[in-house]
């Protein structure tokens, strides 16, 4: 019997080691350890043994059983691991197939630029002011130091509704409305849609966006204007951007300036974008005219202020290298999706 058990041990070990699948292992288990298995059969014959032999053979049988179980367990584990590996291998996919996209919508380039501008000025403590597009003549012209008959009225090619109402040709009326209501310190920017009767072409649109800024407080200087615009130009066009002011004339500021930024394309060396000048004009600015402050009930002896304005379309076109303004209002998906 002892011999029988040893044979079982050797045989089982041999077969287990040769087994190649979990199914095979199971059949081996049944063959030796199952209820009808060989080991069980041997144990059933224990009755014939002498009482002295019984515990010895019993112990040996248990040893054989646990030996087989141990090998079986180890073998099962390794075979399971192997099968999982092969399954994972079969599950391999082509990871270069394009992902399932949700296609988030794209912000319009004009919004991108306006949002950037808003962010810069909010960081500097400005509020965002808005006002009507169908505006009174008074706010669009008179309160801005442009009385009836003034030639500056012609230069803006205004759309009129009737004698009193027009489509605002600038966002400056918003400044007036704010100054009428609010006491200094005032720090606002006014982004908005404005109208001028220019025919549509690659560089003109009868509807376009402006962002104007206004600061009124005690002791505001032209140096403050220049410092503010410098900071603004750097945040919008990059750290290395320089600005240049040229004297100009606006009715509602004095002194007035046109403001150039160093060309974002060539950095100022001169290129096609800047017509070899190294500079690109983007802003108008100046110190608020004392007449305008007075009209709004602010004493120009006590307060001073600066104002500036820029065209959003031209800025966006420069920033994104867009060569035709019409693209901005045509809304071709293939254009919009590029931003």
């Amino acid at each position: 019997m002892r011999e029988q058990l040893n044979n079982i041990k050797l045989e089982a070990e041999k077969r287990l080691n040769q087994a190649g699948s979990l199914a095979e292992l199971e059949s081996i288990r049944l063959q030796y350890l199952g209820k009808k298995g060989e080991l069980t059969a041997v144990l059933r014959g224990m009755g014939q043994l002498t009482p002295e032999e019984r515990p010895q053979i019993g112990q040996l049988a248990n040893e054989v059983r646990s030996f087989i179980e141990k090998i079986l367990e180890a073998k099962t584990k390794s075979l399971q691991e192997k099968e999982r590996l092969s399954r994972l291998e079969k599950e391999a996919i082509d990871v270069t197939i394009p992902g399932k996209r949700r296609f988030i919508g794209k912000k319009h380039p004009l919004s991108i630029v306006m949002d950037e501008i808003k962010e810069v000025f909010i960081g500097l403590g400005y509020e965002i002011a808005e006002g009507p597009e169908v505006e009174l003549d008074y706010y669009n012209f008179e309160a801005l130091n442009i009385p009836p008959g003034h030639p500056a009225r012609d230069s803006q090619d205004t759309f009129f509704i009737n004698d009193d109402f027009l489509l605002r040709s600038q966002t400056s009326p918003v400044q007036i409305r704010v100054m009428e209501k609010k006491k200094p310190p005032i720090k606002i920017i006014c982004p908005g849609r404005v109208y001028r009767s220019d025919a549509v072409d690659a560089t003109h649109s009868p509807i376009f966006y402006q962002v104007e800024g206004l600061v009124v407080d005690r002791g505001v200087t032209m140096g403050d204007l220049i410092g503010t615009l410098q900071l603004f130009a750097r945040s919008l066009f990059g750290e290395d951007t320089r600005i240049r002011l040229r004297p100009h004339h606006f009715q509602f500021t004095e002194p007035s300036a046109e403001v150039d930024v160093s060309c974002w394309s060539c950095g100022g060396k001169g290129c096609r974008m800047c017509k070899d000048e190294g500079w690109i004009e983007i802003l108008g600015a100046g110190m608020v005219h004392p007449n305008v402050l007075r009209i709004c009930g602010i004493d120009p002896k006590e307060y001073s202020g600066f104002a500036f304005g820029l065209g959003v379309e031209r800025t966006a076109m420069g920033k994104f290298n867009i060569d035709d303004m019409r693209l901005l209002y045509e809304n071709d998906m293939r254009f919009l999706r590029q931003f």
């Binding site: 808003k118 000025f121 909010i122 960081g123 500097l124 403590g125 400005y126 509020e127 965002i128 310190p185 720090k187 600061v215 407080d217 005690r218 002791g219 505001v220 200087t221 032209m222 140096g223 403050d224 220049i226 410092g227 503010t228 410098q230 900071l231 240049r244 002011l245 040229r246 004297p247 002194p255 300036a257």
Partner: peptide, 19 residues
């Protein structure tokens, strides 16, 4: 104009700003 020293409203009351 470009010889005017740029400043940033130093010493003026702070405003919070925002939307």
């Amino acid at each position: 104009y470009n010889n005017i020293k740029p400043t940033l409203l130093e010493g003026r009351a702070a405003t919070i700003g925002g939307k």
